[in-house]
């Protein structure tokens, strides 16, 4: 079966069509992980590339992500029962004292579109909450967002909380937000800095590929 049609349906953000093709492919015994990788995740990569080349806007990307989710809903029970795991897990949140969530939400949505299981703790999140959730779900990534110069120092507190608990090395920290920079990430011993949601996807994929 040609999964190209599925990819196109995701790219166009046509959720109904996506569901239909996924069901059809399963009926034709195409392997669920092939449907996932070739049909859905690759489609989102194409959309990401188009965004980088100024060919689509975020709303179009989000429609694709929703279409992909529609396909995932069909696929997930089967993936679980056959033991296929998500490509990774991430905990995300805006740090304590900070209310900005639009950028954080975009990152969450884009990472989800890349096939990563997302745990969103919302805004004004304490170091303890990040640590607890990351341990609970055995996350690969911990994604921190801050938009104020007065809340970005709290990112360091989060990293330190993980150090204190002796689990720092089990997680990869990705940070972002307007006042944050590459060199700031280095200075607080976070692992990566991501400029925006699309870069965050690249970074996350790179990290997860290295972990394999």
């Amino acid at each position: 079966m040609d999964l190209n049609q599925l990819s196109l349906a995701v790219q166009k953000g046509n959720a109904a069509k996506v569901k239909e093709i996924v069901n059809e492919a399963l009926a034709q015994k195409v392997s669920p992980s092939e449907i996932l990788n070739t049909g859905l995740i690759d489609a989102m990569s194409v959309v990401g590339e188009k965004f980088k080349n100024n060919e689509v806007y975020v709303p179009e990307m989000l429609m694709s992500a929703k279409a992909m989710n529609a396909g995932m809903q069909v696929l997930e029970p089967i993936l679980t029962s056959t033991g296929v795991k998500p490509i990774g897990k991430a905990v995300i949140g805006t740090v304590k004292g900070d209310l900005h969530d639009i950028g954080k939400n975009l990152v969450r949505m884009m990472l989800k579109g890349a096939g990563i299981e997302m745990y969103d703790l919302g805004i004004d999140v304490t170091a303890e909450a990040f640590l607890a959730k990351a341990k609970e779900v055995q996350a690969d990534l911990v994604c921190l967002s801050a938009l104020l110069t007065t809340t970005m120092p709290y990112m360091e507190s989060v990293v330190k909380e993980f150090e204190k608990a002796g689990v720092r090395d089990q997680f990869t920290f990705v940070i972002g937000g307007a006042p944050v920079s590459e060199s700031y990430a280095k200075s607080i011993k976070a692992d990566y800095y991501a400029d925006d949601a699309v870069v965050a996807v690249d970074v996350a994929k790179k990290i997860l590929a290295q972990k394999k």
Binding site: G97, T149, T150, T151, M152, P153, Y154, P179, Y184
Partner: peptide, 8 residues
């Protein structure tokens, strides 16, 4: 004006 990176 506003504060440099520091917690309040």
């Amino acid at each position: 004006f506003t504060l440099p990176p520091m917690e309040v």
